[in-house]
Every structure is written in C-alpha cells, then in structure tokens.
Nucleic acid binder design. Sequence first.
RNA 1: GCCCCUAUAGCUCAGCGGUAGAGCUACGGACUUUUAAUCCGCAGGUCGCAGGUUCGAUCCCUGCUGGGGGCACCA
Length: 515
Amino acid sequence: MSEQTAPNPATEEIQSEEEIFEQKRIRLEKRERLNAAGGLGGGAYPVAVPVTTTIPAVRAQWGHLEETPDSASGETVGIAGRIVFQRNTGKLCFASIQAGDGTRIQAMLSLAEVGEESLAEYKELTDLGDHLFVKGEVISSRRGELSVMVSEWQVAAKAIAPLPNLHTELNEETRVRQRYLDLISREQARTNVLTRARTMASLRETFAKHGFMEVETPMLQTMPGGASARPFVTHSNAFDMELFLRIAPELFLKRAAVGGLERVFEINRNFRNEGADSTHSPEFAMLESYQAYTDYNGIADLTQELVQNAALAANVGSDREGTHTVKWADGTLFDLGGDWARISMYGSLSEAAGVEVTPETSVADLQAIADKEGVEVPLANHGKLVEELWEHFVIDSLTGPTFVMDFPVETSPLTRHHRSIPGVVEKWDLYIRGFELATGYSELIDPVVQRERFVQQAAEGARGDVEAMKVDEDFLRALEHAMPPTGGMGMGMDRLLMALTGLGIRETILFPLVK
RNA sequence: GCCCCUAUAGCUCAGCGGUAGAGCUACGGACUUUUAAUCCGCAGGUCGCAGGUUCGAUCCCUGCUGGGGGCACCA
C-alpha cells in the first residue's frame, strides 16, 4: 500500500472492507464528504433539488442558440441530469448531463462564475454517473453547443458504482442483466421501451374504440388450460395444494363471455415451461380477446386493425409517421398496411407440395410425404403431419402479413368445426416475418363437443403428450350455461414488438429472465 | 435435453506452457471553450470455480457454473 492511501480516521473503516475495489472506495469517500457537508435533506442524496424545467424543455426552447455561437439567452434555469462526460480544464469545466430520455445538455462551470472553492469541490466530488443539479443561464458555447453557464451546482445523487465506458457497446449479458446501464448508454434501448409503451397504449385505444373491456384473470390456476404447453408448477402454503402458473387466460375469458362480457380482452403474462430462444421466453406477455357474435373472419379484421394502429403508433415521430411501414433494426422496411392475404392451410400446402392434401388424406399418405422430405413428426396424427408439412413447404414463401386459415381438427381442441368443410376447424394463424404472431378462432361453444375434445386430449396425454390438455370440469360447467357465438384471438405482445421493430425477443422485454 | 463456441482490470477487448497487456475509467499533476478534450505521471487482475497433467498452468485435459449460437419442443 502506497503512502498516499495510508490509513486515516475518516477512511479506515471503509478500507477495512477488502472486497470494495478502489474506484468504489473512492466514491464512498466522496459520498461521506458530501453527506458531512450537506446535513439532513442534503448531502450526497438530497431529498429534492430545485429544478425549474427539464433538459428536453431547455433544448426545445433554446436549441436555436446553437446557430449563434457564444450567445446568451438571459434566462436562468435549474436542471438536473446524469453526468455522462466530463471535460475539465484548470479554470473551466464542461460536463454533458443527460436526461432519462437520452437528451443531453452541456453544463459549464467557470472560475469566474462559481469561485475557486466551488470549482475545486466540483472537481473533487463529482464523477461520471452522478446525477447533478445545476442552476445558471442558458447560453451557447464558443463552439456553439447549447449549455448552462453554472452559477450554483449540487450533487443530486452520488453514484458509487462507476459508469461503464460509453464509447464501446456493453456485451449482451450486461445489457440484459443490468438493463439500467443499457438504458443509460444506448439510444436503441430507450426507444425500444418507448415503442413498447406506445404499442400497448395503442392496442388499448383500439379496443376501447370498439367497446371492449379489459379484465384480469388468474395467473395462479388449479388446472392449467387454454393452450398446449407444459406449465410451471408451484405450491400454495395457505391451501396446501399444487398450483400452476397459467399457460393462457383463455378458459377464464370464456367464462367471462358466458357471463355476458361480450367484448373483452386481457393483456398479461403467460408462463410456459419450455425452450427459450430468440423467439421464445419462459414468461411472455399475451393479448387475448373475445368478441361475441362474430367469427374468425371478424376477429381477423380486428386483429389487422390492432396491428396496423400499433404500427402507426410505433412510427410517431419518425420519418414514416402516418404510414404503416415499420423499420426493423437491420434497416429493412416492412409494410403492414392494406388488407392482408388470407390463404388456406390445405390449399397452400397442396400447391407447394405439388400433391393434393385434404382433410381426407390418410395418415399413411402424409407420413410418406414427410418421410420423403425428411420431416420428422413425433406422435404423428393427421393434424400434426399436415401442420409440420405446411411449415416445411410453405412458411418460408410467405412475404407480407398472412392469415393462414382452416386448420386440422386434431391440433385445435378449443375450436369449432368449419361451417362447410369437414375435418377442419375455423382457426387462423397470422404469420409476420416468418413467425406466428397471432392466432384466431371461431370459438367452440358446444359443451358436448368440448367435452369430447377434452377426453380426446386426455387420451393424447395418456399416450405421453405432456402438453395435452386435461378435462376441465369447471370450465365445462360454465359452457353448459351457453356462451354466445364468439370470435377469439391471441397475440404475443413480445412478438408484436418483434414484428414492429425487427428485434430479438430479449430486446423487446425490459427485464427478460436470466439465470 | 443434445452439440459447438465462450469466460482475462470498473467497461470493451488483446495475449501466451515460464505467475499478464491496451483503450476508456480511476488516482496525482498541468490547462478558461472542451466534444471519447489534451499532455505528464501512477495505480488497478486468485486470468469464472474445482480438480488433473507438468519442474512450472491464465494457456493443455476433466468436471461444474454463467453467457452466446445451433438442434429438438413451443407462441
């Protein structure tokens, strides 16, 4: 240990904590000094600082000063922001301070304005990453940068941990684990959050326009249902019973529909205990909506409107404002406007495979095609084979947003039979950018058929399908009281953001699950 | 669950069978118009963890943990 860090009474205790690395120790000492000087309500973490406006507001009002270097506004403001750059000379200090939205303004501390003692304290006690309050006149510097010529300053919140280097990108793990650093240092991280918030607001607005009510249904369920997926299992101490995190809100929203909530939606989290990759997160935000007295065509119209309005909202403030053309992270422009294509699953598969495939095509014939193409289908039945072959043959050829209509009955146990095509259900999947963004149905409302489907699913479960649904007697009881004819839709919110921004799922989620 | 890659300073990264380097940050100093300020000086690391091979391991091997990518499953 060198002589300059020799122990003294003020720092002895801090230094005894060997695990505190040097930069943090030094900042803790500065914190002590600020607290000693500041008293109650002040110090390193004052209860408030006397801001009169915000950094973005100063930019908006006085930004024109940058056109005339070395000019003064005559206006004094009090602002606060995080110090992101410091450039100190002997008698004049510059700091770039940043607002939460990333807007920056330069603070200038001159010996002539603040005096020798204040300038020296500023240099000794402030660090990159601190929140700083400054009061002073709005001016432009000799180089023309909009600045505040400081007359008074105060630390608004002292950073003990050093700010990461802002000139190189954070690695991906740090971005995700310490999203706050990502938000401080990366414009794209901030706009991702903003776009998500605007998108959510837009969806609610569109629903409100059509008379939908937003509700919240249980996340903890005694029997997980409404989707084919493996649930997370947990335990209730109060009831001493096994509970499941929901895999979908569907069965509760349908109970709500039985009760007369004719236009209803929920935006909330689902949990699925399955693989995680660039398009799947164990917890993900899901939108589900149900509209009485419409069908899968009506709900497709609504879905298109929801997504197109969200695209408009995401484009606010960009050069594409007022259009449905979104810009992805890689620069690709993608047009979500117009009426989207609606193709049939069997028709498009037949065309792409060069073989007529219908709901009557035998499992043996389908398996033969799959074998020839090298498509492996575990626990194969007609429906699974058709869907796998469709993905194999057709999915890559989709360009714009596309509703894929009319699915095989086996794989859609909560959907009603097609009104005119046997063996097919009234279901669509909406594909955008090569992934499934949303799915819609003419909901199955016949309680007798629903019971048969559940029993069939239970048999699949007995065969070893861990995602098969269970017989939900409580839900069946609700259906027996008659649910009106209803169109239903589910949409992955994270995926909607992916479609609007071109980002990976972990970038669309503010704090994705990390081990 | 399987396969491949990866983990070095606060941050971003080099490197190598002979116990470590850069830039930024930090610290000390100079500097009244900087823009990643500049200049001089100086710190900072159990090289993810645990074993093994070796005279000697940050480097080679094994296992574990975290991260990334691919496959399978899924929205």
